[in-house]
Amino acid sequence: MPSYRAILSIGDVHPGHGPEAVMGSAVAAVSSIATVEQTDIQVLSNVPQIVVRFHIDDDGDAHTVADAMHDAVAEVATTGPARLLLRRGGRWLPV
């Protein structure tokens, strides 16, 4: 089964939510559709990003997962650009 990474830039957390709600909402959304393999937080050019790695059957379903993750996180924090990557031959390629 293919492995994907959904990467989402994060801004300010909305009032009434803690920072932990960002990753929690992302994982809840992804795990309701796909198998979560790993999570991470990274900073790229001083912008925090969450990364959720997951398994699902095909690219179309992977886009559905990434959209669900974005929508869930947008309820607790401002979001920026999202990216979806596919693991192929030891490399992560844009979907």
Rank of each mutant, 00 (worst) to 15 (best):
I7Q: 13
S3Y: 00
I7M: 12
S3N: 03
S31G: 12
H63A: 02
H70Y: 13
S45V: 07
D40E: 14
W92R: 08
A72E: 10
I50Q: 10
H17M: 05
T79E: 11
A66S: 15
W92A: 02
T35P: 00
L86R: 14
Q49E: 14
T64I: 08
M1P: 05
P15S: 09
R91N: 09
H63S: 01
L84P: 01
I56L: 07
E37F: 06
A62K: 03
D57Y: 01
R88S: 14
G90H: 05
V76I: 04
Y4E: 07
A77T: 07
T64Y: 04
L85V: 01
E20Q: 15
L86K: 13
G24N: 14
H63Y: 11
I10V: 15
I50S: 08
G80Q: 10
P19V: 11
I10Q: 11
I33S: 07
V73S: 09
Q42D: 12
D58L: 03
G89Q: 02
R88E: 15
R83M: 04
L44V: 15
V51A: 04
M1Q: 02
I7W: 00
A29F: 07
T79V: 15
A29Q: 06
V43W: 06
T79Q: 09
S25A: 14
I56G: 01
I50M: 06
V27E: 13
M23K: 10
S25M: 07
V43A: 11
A82R: 14
E20A: 13
A82C: 01
A28G: 12
M1I: 02
P19W: 05
S9L: 02
E37W: 02
G18W: 01
A66H: 15
A29R: 05
T78R: 09
Y4L: 07
I7Y: 01
Q38M: 13
A68L: 08
P81S: 13
G89V: 01
V95E: 08
H70M: 06
V65F: 09
A34R: 08
S9G: 14
D61W: 02
V36H: 06
G60D: 13
S9Y: 00
G11E: 12
F54L: 05
R88I: 09
T64N: 12
L44G: 02
A62Q: 04
R87I: 01
F54M: 03
E75L: 13
Q42H: 04
G89Y: 01
D67Q: 13
D12L: 14
G90E: 06
S9K: 14
V65L: 05
S9H: 04
P94E: 03
P19C: 01
I50P: 05
A66R: 11
